[in-house]
Design a protein around this nucleic acid. Structure first.
Lengths: 144, 144
DNA sequence: AGTGAAACCAGTCTCTC
DNA sequence: GAGAGACTGGTTTCACT
């Protein structure tokens, strides 16, 4: 992983559909060389894949929230992760320090669906309590 | 925006470097038709772009945290957004309901840089208080 | 909105350095 | 590790439906 690799990654973060030749002209390398490096970066796991960046508000998912989750003592993380992942509205979730045990970032069509989701999360065994903050607006959103 | 568009979007979220022909064979459309739909989805803003998904822990950014920010009354959101965006470690930030005014998701090389970042955020005018939870592990991470 | 044909461009492989 | 060249396959435009 050298500066050229980091440069290639930056170019692919900016636009994942760039051609190898185009990337090569930015980093002074031929297309095959760029392909070899990108293949290596994917194999090493530094690049996990390529995805489309969506405008969810333009697609009906207008409500975002952070749900803090409090679990009963002795609850297993894998179990928690599995239950959270089973809800398609849970976009991201982390196990955290602090008074809550985990935080889930969720996206729903509106407050009604958010309310229903929170109740479902509370019914998923071992959840003792939740505390939700609703996202009013997105202040920063970096592509990486 | 019909079911075919939603299908095309799902395929591009899964792999943004898929060819139009490949997408077409999944949605029973020719490559040129798929291209026109993708162009339209980009123009409408539903698709904001295409990016590489990185493994940040494999690249030295091992520490993630959520920093709750409390601002002085009357602080302007645009100002807050600009100041947060000026720190490259701030990956995402939202204005939220609840007792905190905003939450920033940050990524640093380690606890030392996190500590320094929190102190810098506190020095950015109008910040009255911060409260930080450190991410212990990633439980769910959906690509969308 | 869609298709198929055609020209053009990009991806990928092998070989050589 | 990198480039050149050749082959394969993808992208894009156009005429047509």
């Amino acid at each position: 992983m050298d500066d050229i690799d980091r440069n290639i990654i930056a170019l692919l973060v900016e636009d994942a559909r760039r051609s190898y030749g185009d990337i090569g002209s930015h980093v002074s390398l031929s297309a095959p060389s760029v392909k070899r490096r990108v293949d290596a970066l994917r194999r090493s796991g530094a690049i996990e894949g390529f995805t489309a960046v969506l405008d969810h508000s333009a697609m009906g998912d207008a409500t975002e929230a952070l749900v803090e989750l409090f679990y009963a003592p002795g609850t297993l993380l894998d179990e928690v992760a599995e239950r959270l992942a089973s809800h398609p509205q849970v976009v991201e979730a982390w196990s955290v320090t602090g008074d809550a045990d985990a935080v889930a970032r969720v996206r729903t069509h509106g407050n009604l669906e958010l309310e229903r989701l929170i109740m479902e999360l509370q019914r998923d065994g071992s959840v003792v309590r939740t505390r939700t903050v609703v996202v009013l607006s997105r202040l920063v959103s970096r592509r990486n």
